[in-house]
Each structure stands twice: as C-alpha cells, then as structure tokens.
Simulated assay, not measured.
Amino acid sequence: MKQIIYSLLALVALNACNSNTKTENSTEVQEKEDWIILFDGTTTEGWRAYNGDELPPGWIIKNGELTFDTELGLEQDYTGGKDIIYGAEEFENFELYLEWKLPKGGNSGIFYHLPEVPGMSPSVLAPEYQLIDDENYASMHDLTSYNKKMGETENLDQLQDWQKTASDYAMYPADQSQVDLNPVGEWNSSKIVYTPEKVEYWLNGKVVVSFVPGSEDWETRKNSGKWSNAPDYAKAKKGYIGLQDHSSPIWFKNIKIKKL
C-alpha cells in the first residue's frame, strides 16, 4: 500500500514539474513572439531611405551588422538624404532595443515617431536618442560656432551635456552619473521605452533619461531651445524608427521592437 502511495506522490510531483516547465516555456515563447525583429544580420528588408524607395549608397550589411560605409557612401553620385528608416511599419507606444558602436569621432542618432515629410529633415521632426563619441568628438570637430548659435556661453569648444550620448538631443541630457559608455570600437546597448506617461532612454542596462512627453517641463524645453523654431518637432505620436547618417561610420545589430 505504501508503495502505491509513494508512486502516486511521485507522479503528482512529476506532473507539477512538467506543468511549471510548460508555463515557463510558454512565457518565454510569448516574450520572443512579442518582439518584432527589425534587423537580424541577414537582410535589410523593410529598410529604405527617408523619403526614398531603397537604401542610400553606403548602407550595407557587413559581418552581420548594418553599417554605413563612408567610402561607398561618399563615392556615389547621389543627391538624396542618407538617413534611413524601417519603413515597413509605424510605431506608437513601444520598447526599442539595439546594439551599436562608433569609430573615433563618430556621430549618429536614433529617431522615433518620425513622419515622412518631403523636403524636411528627420532632425526637425522627430526626437533623437543621441549617439556620439563623447570622449573624442570635440577634439576632432570645431563646436564653437554651433554652441554660440545655441546660446551657450561656457566651454564652447566642448560637447554640452545635451549633446552627449543617450541624451534626448537638445532636450534632456543623459544623467552622467549613470552613463557607462564603452570605448569607441566596442559595442553598446540602447533601449527606448515610449508611453504617453513616461519615456525612458537606457544605455548599457541603466536608465539615463526619463521624462513625461508633452508635460509643462517638456513644452518649456521645446519652446526655449533648439526646437523653438521647429513647430513640427515631436508633433507626431506615431511614426517610423530611423537611423541617422552623419557622414560617419556606424554599426548596428540586434535591432528589435516590442509594441506596448
């Protein structure tokens, strides 16, 4: 009799274990299914020029990475813009994840809620998660006149906080106490989480920017800085994901997005 009871208890335990395993596996599968892969290292399907039909010269896949090759890009007789978008779908509330690296002196950015408007640059329409070589950029580029134009009065030859990596460009500076940026040539990970209640910018696993879109503080920053004369800046609440060309090599991989 005892042997029968022990056998039944073992069977119940085994079923419970299998049930838990199925639940965990089901959750993992669901999480994987929630992500939309924008770039998997094998194809540029869905990607094209902003206001264009195909990728501009220079944007290619190399070693499983989406990269802007300046030699290819600058050699072509091409007059269109070189910023690119994932044009297969527009996104509203989302979590975007990607990995990237820059060369010494490199500069790029990630756009979201980007509408396509003929004749207009993405930079005056969409918020930008800044990507730049914080350490070396100022020593390789003259920032003085630009910073003066922006109303800065100190350290005009240096990157301002609102220009540094992971900042909401010209709006919300990245919290430098949380910024842990890998050296040029090494991979970094970034995440943008957008909801109407709060926006978060992540860098290498840490939140470095947080703000409420459209809040009184947001409006004040928008109307008193670089975007004061850009009436359509961040006006769209749904749009494309874009990657910026700044005549600089740039590498991206593992680009994916989840709708919220």
Rank of each mutant, 00 (worst) to 15 (best):
K164V: 06
G73C: 02
E65K: 09
K164H: 11
A88D: 13
P56E: 09
I60C: 05
T67L: 13
N93V: 11
P57R: 05
P127Q: 03
G109I: 06
M140T: 08
E95V: 15
N93M: 11
D77S: 13
Y172K: 05
E152R: 02
E71R: 12
L159S: 05
T144K: 14
G64I: 03
V117Q: 12
D83W: 01
K62S: 14
L66A: 02
T165A: 15
L98W: 12
E154W: 03
L156K: 08
G87T: 02
M150K: 14
L143E: 00
E90W: 12
K101N: 11
K148P: 08
I60K: 05
Q160V: 04
I84C: 00
E89F: 11
L96R: 03
D142T: 01
E71N: 12
K148R: 15
M120Q: 14
G73Q: 04
K148D: 10
G151N: 02
A170V: 11
H113A: 01
L72I: 14
A88W: 10
W100S: 04
M140L: 14
M140H: 04
N63S: 13
G58S: 00
W162P: 10
G106E: 03
S123V: 15
S108A: 11
L114C: 00
K149C: 10
A174T: 00
L159C: 09
L114H: 00
P173L: 12
G73N: 00
D69C: 02
K101H: 12
L159W: 08
S108N: 06
S121G: 13
S123G: 12
G80T: 00
E135W: 05
A126Q: 06
L159K: 04
G119H: 12
G109A: 03
S167K: 10
W100P: 06
K101I: 12
